[in-house]
Write a protein that binds this DNA or RNA. Structure first.
Lengths: 165, 165
DNA sequence: ATAGAATCTAGAGCTAACTCTAGGTCAAGC
DNA sequence: GCTTGACCTAGAGTTAGCTCTAGATTCTAT
């Protein structure tokens, strides 16, 4: 079974332009061509494409993905290098996810901040009296709610479906 | 207390160039200037900067951060808009983190793939006999280990510190 | 008073990752 | 046989987000 660039693009939800760009950058050395010079992807090629897409999603620059693919084409002598490459990017991804978790926490506290302001009708309830500066105690209050077991994701939600009878 | 652009840059680990760029893009309308036209950041400005940095980390484009800051400057009439904005980006961030978790899972399975290949000395142990195509059963084997309670993060780790006595 | 450092603006330059255009080749259906 | 659409390459264009340069202040420390 073999596939045209259009079929692969369709299947992976990537544009053919992008696939050709990847090829130009050396990411697709494993792809065959037919007599007319057109790319023919094999079933096994999807294993490589899966790795490429994974590394892209992990935030690895195209050039570095290229060096990884080079290692793959070289053979068993590069197994350790490939392992190390993946380990490195696993660690980076873990870091990134930890940072994003902090970002999410912050977003949720701010949502709660606006939820409570909305309920009061004004942001001023969060200001130090007589100023337009946020009272640090407001954040502390939120932290306390979380420490006391509240779900940070739910705390900021406006109860819209509360109208019942 | 007020701070120069250099001091703020230092404190936030951002370059002054970037801060000026943000200002140019309308992200810092709240920053005062002294008689000489130099920016003077107030303590309260760090609340805004914290939000800007959070949104950036969440992947929100600079232009959209600008519209959020505009809402902030407008006053209580925009509280609902600000809430909705944060809700939207909370949802997007949750999606992204779910995708990154899948990416991380994939990276870990590939690490295990290379760990076992390294231990065998060749990648061929994962190929269908007589081919250089990966045997789909290999991935299934990994999935089974995980289903049986193994830690996916630990499974791919080479036990380097095993030399003891 | 003055040298050196920090700041200002406007605008040019840079990089990554596409995205598209132009001009040509090739395969399938009428 | 001919048209239509997918494909090819080379290379130009685009966008976001910085990053830097030039030339002119302004502040700080001796």
């Amino acid at each position: 079974m073999s596939y045209s660039i259009g079929q692969v693009a369709e299947k992976l939800s990537i544009s053919p332009y992008t696939l050709r760009y990847y090829d130009k950058e050396g990411l697709l050395p494993f792809v065959d061509r037919n007599q007319a010079g057109r790319r023919r992807f094999k079933d096994n090629d999807f294993n490589f494409l899966e790795v490429i897409i994974c590394l892209k999603e992990a935030g690895v620059p195209v050039k570095q993905i290229g060096t990884f693919i080079d290692l793959c084409m070289t053979g068993d002598t590069t197994l350790q290098d490939r392992y190390d490459f993946l380990s490195e990017h696993e660690a980076k991804l873990e870091d990134k996810m930890a940072r994003l978790q902090h970002t999410l926490d912050f977003l949720r506290w701010k949502k709660w901040y606006y939820k409570t302001a909305l309920q009061a009708g004004t942001e001023q309830i969060h200001y130090l009296p007589g100023t337009n500066h946020v009272d640090p105690a407001v954040h502390a209050e939120f932290d306390k709610l979380v420490a006391d077991g509240a779900d940070p994701k739910a705390l900021g939600n406006l109860a819209e479906g509360r109208a019942k009878a």
